[in-house]
């Protein structure tokens, strides 16, 4: 009897969650996008790095990269213009909702392996730019492996609860009194380049410990790798300064003469090495002086 009651209650809860709305309305976006600006933002945001299965030799942005999390393996989506397996049949408003809200066109939440939390402040112009750039990607008519997590994580509607608890606004608001470069760095580090996604410790539910673990490093990244602490103090004690950090974001060289591998190697190779010198310097300036903590 008790089991039946629990099952009914559970089923009722899931149905309730399914009906619970989380999507915010997206106003029509009629701005003209700039392909170059969009491609630049896409690189900065890691779209190419995560949605390209480099290990498997997959085509750019065709997805398929597997992220092994404690809850199961999540596979990156195909973001090419293929209408069947990619985003070729989406409208720009669908794209805006996916990027800024982490929701599918049908309002189904994406797993937070997708770092949409950091893109919530993207402007309509930035969305239009990204959209224009994605339209230049050749279609790849191939599905990606289906993300198959164990219950209850398989219930994406359960992510609505997760979002209520752990979806935080990005810290991209400019700080008065700081230089333009510092604020640009803050915009990139806390937003598009989503450094905190890897470099912040997570709780048992996979939520970032934004109060106690911010930029303190993470020893249990998907796939078993680690990300070191990148608070300003930690960076200083590891021998970094603005100059060497900016140079590392271009080249991958660390102050010890080593070259980045792992996730950071991918970040540089597919992302930050394509940024302007000014933007890399801005990121380094902010990271070495996260003084509003």
């Amino acid at each position: 009897m008790g089991v039946v009651a629990l099952t009914v209650a559970g089923a009722g809860g899931i149905t309730g969650l399914r009906l619970y709305p989380v999507a915010k309305p997206v106003d029509p976006i009629t701005l003209t996008g700039n392909v170059g600006a969009g491609a630049y933002l896409a690189r900065a945001s890691g779209c190419i790095a995560c949605h390209t299965n480099v290990e498997g030799g997959g085509p750019p942005l065709a997805g398929g990269t597997g992220f092994e999390t404690p809850f199961g393996t999540v596979f990156a989506a195909n973001l090419t213009t293929d209408p069947e397996f990619g985003i070729g049949d989406w409208a720009i408003e669908d794209f805006a909702k996916a990027v800024r809200q982490g929701l599918s066109p049908e309002d189904v939440p994406y797993y937070p392996v997708f770092t949409y939390a950091f893109y919530q402040d993207f402007s309509d112009q930035q969305i239009a730019d990204l959209w224009a750039a994605f339209q230049t990607v050749a279609p790849v008519n191939e599905p990606v492996p289906v993300t198959d997590l164990a219950f209850p994580f398989s219930e994406r509607d359960g992510l609505k609860v997760w979002r209520a608890a752990f979806l935080h606004a990005p810290r991209t608001t400019p700080v008065s009194g700081q230089s333009d470069s510092w604020n640009r760095g803050r915009e990139l580090v806390e937003g598009a380049t989503h450094c905190a996604a890897c470099h912040t410790e997570r709780n048992i539910a996979g939520g970032r410990k934004v109060d106690t673990g911010r930029m303190q490093g993470n020893d249990v990244l998907p796939g078993g790798s680690k990300a070191p602490a990148i608070t300003s103090a930690a960076l200083v004690s590891s021998g970094w300064d603005v100059d060497s950090l900016s140079y590392a974001l271009e080249t991958g060289i660390t102050p010890t003469g080593d070259a980045f591998g792992g996730g950071m190697g991918e970040v540089v190779q597919m992302g930050t090495r394509f940024l302007t010198q000014e933007d890399r310097l801005a990121m380094a300036t902010y990271l070495m002086d996260q003084s509003d903590e």
Partner: peptide, 8 residues
């Protein structure tokens, strides 16, 4: 960058 690509 070749070193980093290889390490990655």
């Amino acid at each position: 960058q070749v070193c980093s690509a290889c390490h990655t």
